[in-house]
Amino acid sequence: MTRRIRHIAGALGLITVAVVALAAPAGASGETIGGCAIDKAIEAEEHLPSLHEIHDEEFEAEFEALEKEMESCLEAPSAIIPELDEIIWGGTAFLVLFGFMVWKGFPAVQGAMNARADRIAADLDAAEQAKVDAVKIKTDHEAELSGAKAEAAGIIDDARAQADQLKGELQARANEEVAEMRARAAADLESARSQAISDLRGDVSQIAVGAAEAVIKANLDRDAQSALVNAYIDEVAGRG
């Protein structure tokens, strides 16, 4: 890069030197305004017999014509067609400059342009690669996002399923507890009822048996007792 800049700077320096050097001869070959006026005057004097007769009306027209011709010295050369020497010097300088440019400048500029084009191409390639990478990253991210969304959806579905299952289990457990409580309450009620009936039967039987004992005790005289003993003896003997 530095070498290329150095070549361009050298070419521009040579061009400047050539223009300055070739401009001086071109300027020297041109005619000055004073010289032009003198030439016009000499040429007019050669046509006029004497300047003392300038007051003569016959020469006033000639004088005006001379004046116009001298004034023409003040007019600029053609705006379009340069002088021949200028064309020669300018064309030569142009050719030299053009040759130099073809020899040194154009390759340098071409190289710089190529380098720039290569750089731009490389940048474009890098940009394209970056774009491709970005697209790939975007695609990957989209895929990951899609996967994450799918995973999140799966998690949500699992959570919902678990929630439903838990809800069902809780509901079932609650139902079981309610049923168990009802059964326990019914069992307690039945137990209390049975206990009350049992207690009542116990009390009744206690009273009845107590009354029976009292009656038996009052009616068991010695003969009855003896009869019971004899019956017992007979029963024991019968067991054999």
Partner: peptide, 16 residues
Amino acid sequence: LTDDQKSRLAQAIKQS
């Protein structure tokens, strides 16, 4: 118990 009852009871127990 009378002696007879005792005797019969002993005999009944021996039988059984």
